[in-house]
């Protein structure tokens, strides 16, 4: 057995990691909830955003500053990708949409591979090895920042969805496409806005990940596997489910790392995934079947 402080420290560390999982998962579940497709380009977009943040840092802009440019930029790119590529190419068939996003992910990953090679790159930020002292545990500053940024992003996203007409239109289209069209909501526009919001969330995740992580052309995949587990656990299409699921998975990973050894940290994630599918396939916050 471990001393309670060590377990509590592991839980807090798990929450910090889980916040980034939550952010990546919210983006995935938001797009699923509205467009009813799993976006296979999700990991590739995250990777592309991490490269963008990497080169911004090389140009002298800290990722935490670059995020204010990259989030809007990725919103526009995501909007354009859905409105002018994925939407028209899928002709209203969900299966086509899946294939188009898969194609897009292959394209993005290989373009990054061709341009930058498969080297692993890291950045050095002044706060990279700073810590936050809680008295019984030192927390790495970049991950505390990541946690805080995720909380702010989630709050903004919640306010957007609950309080603005655009957010209400997104929720309307998610559940009742024809009804939405008949009150004059432009469904293709809402799809693109949703996809853009997903991409913007990934850009934010990229900017807070980079100071404590590395980037190479397939880095996004690791996060998307976890995000998929989180989305299933939280309930497909449920944003609160993805938030809580992300934090939970972070803690599970941290604790199984503590008890079974660091290299087996991911074991807990997949056990949870299988349990979720067996016991509660609709997820914690999923819609009634």
């Amino acid at each position: 057995m471990f001393a309670p402080e060590i377990v509590i420290a592991a839980v807090i560390n798990g929450l910090l990691t889980g916040a980034v999982y939550a952010l990546v998962s919210v983006a995935l579940t938001l797009v699923y909830g509205v467009l009813h497709i799993i976006n296979f380009a999700h990991g590739a977009i995250l990777t592309a955003a991490m490269f963008a943040a990497f080169f911004a840092e090389q140009a002298g802009v800290d990722p935490l500053i670059a995020v204010f440019g990259l989030a809007p930029l990725f919103f526009v790119l995501g909007y354009g990708a859905q409105r002018y590529i994925i939407g028209p190419a899928s002709h209203g068939e969900d299966s086509n949409t899946l294939l188009v996003t898969l194609g897009l992910s292959i394209l993005i990953e290989n373009a990054l591979l061709a341009a930058f090679g498969s080297d692993t790159r890291t950045i050095d930020v002044p706060y990279g090895f700073s810590t936050v002292d809680l008295g019984f545990v030192f927390l790495p500053a970049p991950r505390v920042i990541a946690f805080a940024v995720t909380c702010v992003t989630a709050t903004l996203l919640w306010a957007l969805l609950k309080k603005t007409d655009t957010g209400k239109a997104i929720r309307a289209v998610a559940k009742e496409k024809l009804g939405a069209a008949l009150v004059g909501i432009d469904v293709a526009h809402v799809y693109a806005v949703t996809f853009g919001l997903g991409a913007a969330c990934l850009a934010i995740a990229a900017c807070v990940l980079l100071p404590s992580y590395y980037v190479q052309p397939r880095v996004g995949d690791a996060y998307v596997f976890v995000a998929f587990t989180v989305v299933v656990l939280g309930g497909m299409g449920s944003a609160p489910g993805a938030m809580i699921g992300g934090l939970f998975i972070g803690v599970v990973e941290s604790l199984s790392g503590l008890y079974f050894g660091e290299s087996l940290g991911q074991l807990g994630i997949f056990v949870i995934f299988i349990l979720a599918l067996l016991v509660r396939p609709t997820g914690l916050f999923g819609a009634r079947a």
């Binding site: 239109a169 559940k175 024809l178 009150v183 004059g184 909501i185």
Partner: peptide, 21 residues
């Protein structure tokens, strides 16, 4: 078949009625 927005409140449904006009 009404096509209302089932997981939104009555007020939100009405608000969206004036989304475009």
């Amino acid at each position: 078949a009404r096509r209302i927005f089932p997981d939104m409140s009555v007020r939100e449904n009405l608000e969206l009625g004036s989304y475009r006009r």
